[in-house]
Amino acid sequence: MAPFALLVLILFAFALGPDRTPLINATPGLFWVAVLFSTMFAIQRSFSLEATEGLHDSIILAGIDPAGFFIGKLLAIGAELGVLEILTAAGIIILYGAHVTSMLVLLFSCVLGTIGLSAAGTMYGALVSGMRLRETLLPLLFLPVASPVLIAGTRSWQAGLAGEHISASPWMWILVAFAVLYICVGVVLYGPMEDM
């Protein structure tokens, strides 16, 4: 997925023109849209790996608690996305010439947003895995649900790039709430979903 991040940055530059000002203004949104789409790739990859090798059966046989399995999958996808986010952020700073005033805000919003996205994504990935139309259904189900992360992430990045710590805090709470909500939902519902 690393080349994908670079490609997205270059494509956005093509779409918005070589002028720096619109690029830097759009940076927070571009970053989170890129993360959102990459999440879907990560989810699809993660579940297709599981489906092909009969891995799923052996996990069931190993007797791992479904909730633990959910957390494990969430962390794996989150780690994958974390690497991608670092690369994308570096690309933004180098290619777009964005000035980062408050790294801490960016970092926190990334961590929180990524946990939330991976939790919701893992839920929906498990839900559509094994379905014929899963490539179409996953975005249809996942993207509307993930919209609070896109908005809150973008707003905290705007605050972080501009160095306004205070205005980022309500958005951080949205990210926390989203992550907590979907971890809870996943822990409770992942067991019933495994029966499918």
Binding site: M123, V145, P148, I151, A152, P170, I174, L181, L189
Partner: peptide, 15 residues
């Protein structure tokens, strides 16, 4: 899951 997301979406949008 869609239903539990509604309050969150709502408060995000209000802000």
């Amino acid at each position: 899951v869609a239903f539990v997301d509604v309050p969150l979406i709502q408060s995000t949008m209000v802000w």
